[in-house]
């Protein structure tokens, strides 16, 4: 059986909130290492990969591999009933029909219990190769969100060009064009506000802004976001969580 307690319900709330518009139904794969999820969006342009390691739970127990097939909208309806600071315990049998969720207020004076029905989901699992990316950019997640939001007002697509001088996000649309260039800098008072660019070769790729704006819903999970790019391969957008990560892969656009 699975029994996993999170110190703060908000971690799972934020994960589900961030991905529920990309993915409707998916399996939460539970094993002794933790809980993982991998799913493509309906149009097969983006891939979501999430891991909450067992060390992020206390206690964590999972005797055998269990796939929890969940409708994310249903899960979100239940998770909205949890306060951010509530303790959240997930429980399921070895061959479960439902997932049990227990919310305990931090003052322990309220217990809420919900069961949601599970579904059989036949999901294709994709192998993601280890990639040495040509450019890795770490920047404040709020900054990335703002860039995507601002440029999406002008265009459907953004080109991301990284070279030794910095990283340039540029777009052009019917009303005109725009760009934002970030240069590496270190904020000595707050490391999370720094922009770091590691580059082995220049890259220039074009992506759909609609998806990037969607990924940015994960911004509340982490103060920083990591963008990994190589020419001709999907962009990796990664938000680190305490004991895991939420990763989005986005296929590039090609041609003009």
């Amino acid at each position: 059986m699975l029994e996993a307690r999170l110190e703060q319900a908000q971690i799972l709330k934020k994960v589900v909130e961030a991905i529920k518009d990309l993915v409707q139904d998916c399996n939460f794969d539970c094993n002794d290492a933790g809980i993982q999820l991998q799913a493509m969006d309906n149009s097969h342009v983006a891939l979501v990969s999430m891991k909450l390691g067992s060390e992020g739970f206390s206690p964590y127990r999972c005797d055998r591999n269990i796939a929890l097939g969940i409708n994310l909208n249903s899960l979100m309806k239940v998770l909205r009933a949890a306060a951010n600071e509530d303790l959240l315990t997930l429980k399921a049998e070895d061959q479960p029909d439902s997932l049990n969720l227990l919310f305990e207020s931090s003052s322990q004076d309220r217990l809420s219990e919900y069961d949601i029905k599970l579904m059989d989901i036949d999901q294709e699992h994709l192998g993601i190769p280890d990639t040495e990316y040509a450019a890795t950019i770490t920047l404040p997640s709020a900054e990335f969100q703002r860039i995507c939001r601002d440029l999406s007002a002008l265009s459907e697509s953004v080109s991301i060009e990284a070279n030794k001088d910095g990283v340039k996000f540029a777009c052009s649309g019917d009303i005109g064009n725009g760009s934002v260039t970030l240069r590496p800098h270190t904020n000595v008072e707050d490391e999370d506000k720094s922009t770091k660019i590691e580059l082995t070769e220049p890259v220039n790729l074009t992506f759909s802004l609609k998806y990037l704006v969607n990924f940015c819903k994960a911004s509340s999970l982490s103060a920083t976001v990591r963008l990994c790019l190589s020419n001709e391969v999907p962009l990796l957008v990664e938000y680190q969580m305490g004991a895991g990560y939420l990763r989005f892969y986005l296929a590039p656009k090609i041609g003009d």
Binding site: H44, G127, I254
Partner: peptide, 14 residues
């Protein structure tokens, strides 16, 4: 116009 690639053309099923 640019065309959107599919993610499954980069990552193969396991």
């Amino acid at each position: 116009m640019s065309s959107q690639r599919s993610i499954s053309s980069f990552f193969t099923p396991v």
